[in-house]
């Protein structure tokens, strides 16, 4: 009986929060490395993300192995040598919209904000603040941002032989379409 009560209470508290949460399982992250030698792009269309419209909190989680490259060899090097995806299978971001205004988010107009949080790649956490544009469209909330990540910040060692092929600053694009939880 006690368990049923606890379960019911949990369920109520969960349901109570549910409509404040938006999520996606198919968010889009791509990165772009430009160098005089070559341009490299990788795409991941299976990113999980949550947006809490009560608090303005945003979290992202992406699996490293789900990034696809045009060249199989690059994908192999990315996983095995640079990201060590067997040891560090995911990258995450946990952050918050600064000066969050729920009414502005839900207005249906583009809502331009700064999101501040922590980016975790290869077990190394770095602060990240980025400009984000959010817009509510019907039942969905769309979000988009672009930021720079440095391989050196995450202790990614690029062999001397290919150091001219990989940019010191990688451009990361994020696009998500959140749906109500």
């Amino acid at each position: 009986m006690r368990y049923i009560l606890i379960f019911t209470l949990l369920l109520i508290s969960f349901l109570g929060q549910a409509q404040d949460k938006y999520f996606t399982k198919s968010g889009f992250i791509s990165f772009f490395s430009h160098s005089p030698m070559e341009d490299i792009t990788a795409v991941n269309k299976q990113v999980a993300a949550f947006l809490d419209i009560e608090t303005g909190e945003i979290t992202f989680a992406a699996l490293i192995k789900s990034f696809t490259f045009e060249k199989a060899l690059m994908q192999e090097h990315f996983n095995e040598n640079y990201m060590e995806s067997d040891n560090y299978p995911k990258a995450t971001f946990k952050g918050k919209i600064l000066d969050y205004d729920k009414a502005a988010l839900l207005s249906g107009q583009p809502y331009k904000v700064k999101v501040e949080g922590k980016l975790l790649i290869r077990g190394i956490e770095k602060d990240l603040t980025t400009d984000v544009e959010l817009i509510k469209e019907g039942n969905f909330i769309k979000g988009e941002t672009l930021f720079i990540a440095k391989p050196s910040d995450f202790d990614i060692k690029i062999p001397a032989l290919v150091k001219d092929n990989i940019a010191k600053e990688i451009e990361v694009t994020v696009k998500t379409k959140f749906e109500p939880y």
Binding site: K25, Q46, A48, A61, L63, I64, K65, S66, P89, K90
Partner: peptide, 13 residues
């Protein structure tokens, strides 16, 4: 499918 890891769910691609 290939197992890429675990988020809130197990992911096969």
């Amino acid at each position: 499918g290939r197992c890429d890891g675990y988020l809130s769910d197990v992911r096969l691609t």
